[in-house]
Design a protein around this nucleic acid. Structure first.
Lengths: 341, 341
DNA sequence: TTGTAGGCGTTATCAA
DNA sequence: TTGATAACGCCTACAA
């Protein structure tokens, strides 16, 4: 391995001078600097990051821990993060820990020492977990995590507001029996979206019916199963709000197979507005989230925290969502619903 | 910061013993090992990876350099890589370098010293670039890269064979004017898919028509533009093979807007079989690639190389592709084409 | 402006 | 089985 020692020897200077030359110190003449750089180039020298971080206490790397690495959501958030990080010459250490508990703890711990800070997305994150696994004051930005009692920066999307906008939109189309396919049990996003659904019903003066709140796990198949269950009800809903687009896709298949037309017989709405949504037939009405922006903002918060460790209180930002109306909700149907008021 | 020194003191042992206890050496009694582990747990000790890698010469991290971080392809390959890496207790440093030349070189260089090996995907990669930026013998697995004269392990998908299968399938449906929307200029995948297309035409005894080879850049909009150009020809094609699914999606929109029905008026095929393909209307016939498997296999090759540095010759594997027939090619149309032989 | 030398946290070597 | 100590590559006071 070629070290700074070799570079120094090749350039006939001391190690210290070589180091200074490589780090743009102004304690070297431009002339010797160039000589050192030349030698470094010829030798294909690259500093050993580990050795450097030992003394600078900096890795110039941010850790990203996600619940899974699946689908558009993941690729978009990474894209936003990497773009911002790269701009600041930071690297990204990516990992996933599907479950809460030991695997998550292990993943968190294994990142310590490798990264200067962490972007953490875990819908089951808790303050206890943080205390158990992270050094006090370790820079962390929580994305999409339930609130904790710790002063971590946090960032989330307007889950409840988005859900509410969707359900109010459906109610505005004269639907009175609106069902929700819920997200995974214990998942913060799921809980918030359910809350928004319920609030919207109340706001629209519609009665809540427990039979219309069916469970799901954010997966396509669970959406299909939920739709089948809803169709089997004695008094089935005329509109279905799926807590994410994957489940909406599953629901759409199931509805079709059950002979129901969307949106004529049943209106359908999703959440996330994944790229696929606009290509479906009918195109899916969904709550749009700018995911890359989410990643970008998380990184900005983290980098700011790294640059100014204790300069400000913990941020607590909420990124807005927007309702994207397409065909699946039936807003563009020419004939009004039969049961319209 | 809590170091091994603190742990040693807390457990009343020497630093050496503490280190041994933490690393499962059998040179410590189970008793002292537990005592040290206890102390480490209480103090929330985590080893400093940089310091360790300074002496072990290992970072236990693999680098992943991709041309961009966009879409399903990216998320799937990372998923395959991370899963395999995590299983071997390796970490993943992810980065993207959109363009060839300086940015790519910089990205490569900045990873050196941080990773034990590299999974590199760059359709414009060259042996020269490798020599310029990587230490000789540095473990690299090339994915989807053009062949070089260097002994790097490499992995690619059966581009030409996949394209050929698609075009022969279209020819089998009695199409005689089959167009291709080409991929990005200078891109290895694009070149290979074009080659497969031409081979298939020859194999089927169809005349090649330069007018039917229209340029594209793998983006949706370029697919739309290409389709418009093809439709404007005096003798337009009856089938279009888009070199990837994104362009097929763009082509589909353009064809619709131009009043052509797919597959009745024009048959359409794509490449990659992204998840969205099966949800389109009509569902897209495409060449399926198991991308997660690609990532998995690349990681296996790299880890094997890390474990046995010079044990074998450079691998050169090709992952098979499979033709997935859906509606967009018209294979399931009941009435045969008018111009069928 | 340059060189010398000490130390960052860890593992490995040797001696006890 | 344990402990003292020398590396590993780098940066940075301090001295020249």
């Amino acid at each position: 391995m070629v070290t700074i020692k070799d570079v120094a020897r090749a350039a006939s200077v001391s190690i210290a001078t070589a180091s200074r030359a490589m780090n743009d110190s102004d304690l070297v003449t431009p002339e010797t600097r160039d000589r050192v750089r030349d030698a470094a180039g010829k030798l294909h020298y690259t500093p050993h990051i580990g050795a450097r971080s030992l003394i600078t206490r900096r890795t110039h790397t941010i850790g990203i821990l996600l619940p899974d690495l699946y689908g558009e959501f993941f690729s978009e958030i990474i894209r936003g993060i990497d773009q911002t990080a790269q701009h600041a010459r930071f690297h990204c250490l990516v990992s996933s820990a599907r479950h809460t508990g030991p695997p998550l703890e292990a993943a968190l711990r294994s990142m310590r020492g490798r990264v200067d800070g962490l972007i953490l997305m875990s819908p089951e994150f808790t303050g206890d977990l943080s205390r158990r696994t992270l050094p006090l004051g370790f820079p962390v930005v929580l994305v999409h995590c339930p609130p904790t009692d710790l002063p971590h920066d946090s960032l989330m999307i307007a889950n409840a507001e988005g859900a509410r906008a969707m359900v109010e939109h459906l109610a505005g189309l004269a639907h009175r029996r609106i069902a929700i396919i819920r997200g995974a049990e214990g998942n913060f996003d799921a809980t918030e979206r359910l809350r928004g659904y319920r609030e919207a019903l109340t706001a629209c003066g519609l009665a809540a019916d427990p039979a219309l709140e069916v469970p799901g796990d954010f997966g396509e198949e669970s959406g299909a199963a939920a739709a089948r269950a809803l169709m089997a009800l004695p008094d089935p809903p005329t509109a279905i709000f799926a807590a994410n687009d994957c489940m909406a896709i599953g629901a759409l298949s199931a509805l079709r197979e059950g002979g129901r037309r969307v949106p004529e017989d049943v209106a359908l709405g999703g959440f996330d507005d994944i790229p696929m949504a606009r290509y479906m037939t009918p195109a899916l009405t969904s709550v749009h989230v700018d995911i890359a922006r989410l990643g970008q903002r998380a990184t900005e918060l983290l980098l700011d925290r790294l640059a100014h460790p204790a300069s400000r209180h913990a941020a607590r930002e909420v990124l807005p969502t927007t309702l994207t109306v397409r065909q699946s909700c039936g807003a563009s149907l020419t004939t009004p619903r039969r049961d319209a008021v």
